[in-house]
Design a protein around this nucleic acid. Structure first.
Lengths: 140, 140
DNA sequence: GCTGTAAATGATAAGGCTTTTCATTTAGTA
DNA sequence: TACTAAATGAAAAGCCTTATCATTTACAGC
């Protein structure tokens, strides 16, 4: 992810934007809430307001640099958009997120949209469950 | 849906609960927000507090009488749970909701959960798009 | 480099939806 | 019919997110 990507999106190259990108790229977790990003910035010593974090993430989403996930009922989570679409498995115990892509499901979705007269613009698929970590399996 | 269903769920049979059930069963639209239910109650002349509506719907969900949908970013929507699982097509223009069920997708989801070591507890699939109403097609 | 202007930021307030609180009322049992 | 736990209503509080607005900053043009 480069300064160029910001330019292309018509966004000025500002310290908050560069730092948010940096967090998204270098964080151990690929999926971060706005709050997560905000805290990571604080840990880096960057005093960037939470409102700015929300704004920047929303702009990045608009620019296609970032995707926003809406986990059931909860808050939004962001991930870098590397161009390949995928869906998510979500561990209801440890909140771990695993990505997957399934062409069969994709095709069926397109077929369903079409047969109902829908022009599909987007879709979201979340599989919720308990993952295979020992701590989580115990909870089953 | 009967008084018995409330009893089984360990819920006392109260006027608010009966009236909320009545709305869910008799409403023209199958999918209602808490606010929708609240307004429908007012129209019936029942002065039931919004907090009660939220509480009752949440209890009904816990009892398996009702399902809660989380449309992207927006508010929750409730529908009677008649026992058959289905997913939803959502018109981003007129908010119409269409239900569908696809066994191929269901199977693939189970397979994906399994191959990732997940014990699936639930899943949610929303297809967003523009439906085939004239007013909506114009927006395309 | 400097300047000007539109864009970006930060702090705070406001918003929308939902849950909590707590005093009052009610269902259902003894 | 009386009692007790559960349910209700009104209002406040919560949570996440967006809007407001005065101040600061990026960057195009001189």
């Amino acid at each position: 992810m480069e300064r160029q990507d910001l330019r292309k999106a018509g966004l000025k190259i500002t310290l908050p934007r560069l730092k948010v990108l940096e967090i998204l790229e270098n964080s151990k977790q690929r999926h971060l809430s706005a709050e997560d990003v905000y805290k990571a910035l604080l840990e880096m010593g960057e005093e960037i307001g939470l409102a700015t974090v929300y704004r920047v993430l929303t702009q990045f989403e608009g620019a296609g640099l970032v995707s926003r996930l809406n986990i059931d009922g909860g808050h939004a989570v962001f991930e870098l958009d590397d161009g390949d679409h995928h869906d998510h498995l979500f561990c209801v115990n440890c909140n771990r997120i695993i990505e997957f892509y399934d062409e069969v499901i994709e095709q069926r979705q397109r077929a369903i949209a079409e047969s109902n007269g829908f022009e599909m613009t987007d879709h979201s698929l979340y599989i919720y469950g308990v993952c295979n970590r020992e701590e989580c399996k115990k909870e089953r």
